[in-house]
Amino acid sequence: MKNDLQKLFAPPACETAAADYIENYLKNKAETTRDAMGSVTVHIGGSGKKLLLSAHIDEPALMITHIDENGFLRFAAAGQLNPIELINSKVVFSDKICGAVFCNAEKNVSEIKISDLFIDINAHSRDEAEKLVSEGDMAVIGGRSLSRLCCSILLELIDEIKASNYDLYFAFTVQKEVGFRGIMPVINSVMPDIFIALDTVKADDIPCGKSEIKLKGGAVIAVKDGRSVLSPSLVSDFRETAFKNSVSVQYASFNEQQTEAPTAQCAAGGSKAAAICVPVRYLNTANETISEKDIYAAKTLIKHFITEA
């Protein structure tokens, strides 16, 4: 795995470091383009239908909304963040300045909101804090995000795939965490026939979890994502590919949209869309946990799909 990619600072709308990394990695290998929103697209080529594979480069973040007179920071969430999971987390700003999230509200746990939390950056007055951060600055959680592990998988696939049955495009998209935004202009540019989103998804095989998605359970093939039913023919292609090549897979149906697939499905001229996910325990916290086995399964599944199906 390309671990340095996970350590980059890339909150929504501030993904330049991750986009640079990807463009740099692909230099001399393929021609990349970066659109106005910041997403990177690469056209590998080949004959056949247009197939676009996409992984997002951003990660959820905290946007500073207020600095108080004692140097404490208030924030809003850029992306889906659970206030309970944020408490006591370390957060990191673009220039490596660190802080931690605390809560001092006298409330029941279930009533705690993001607006009850604050960040301590060890500044003791507004002046001191303003030397380190400004309102509108972003901070990420823990300083490492597995959100981008799917980008690593795509980069490895670009390296490894020599021939395919498709006209291949890869996209590394911005602003997924805040509402699947970066993918829209990409779809309008590429106009794919087939779209595959590669993303991480919460593994809930923990105490009091529903255990629908299991860590070490293999690549997750999404059947339904939010209000969208993903392409049944692609799902069955993936099922067959997994069976033929003994790739371990699990199936899932998401109540709320988790991947870019539904957005891509009906954008521009429309496409057949699928989503393959890697399970992550404690997603979007400082303690994200993954299994190499699932990463391998997702990568192998897609590789066989591209070259065989």
Partner: peptide, 18 residues
């Protein structure tokens, strides 16, 4: 000082090629 509210930017930034 908030992430709430909405305006036309959301639709404009993703129109066409962004």
């Amino acid at each position: 000082r908030t992430g709430n509210g909405g305006n036309n930017a959301g639709r404009i930034q993703v129109a066409g090629k962004g």
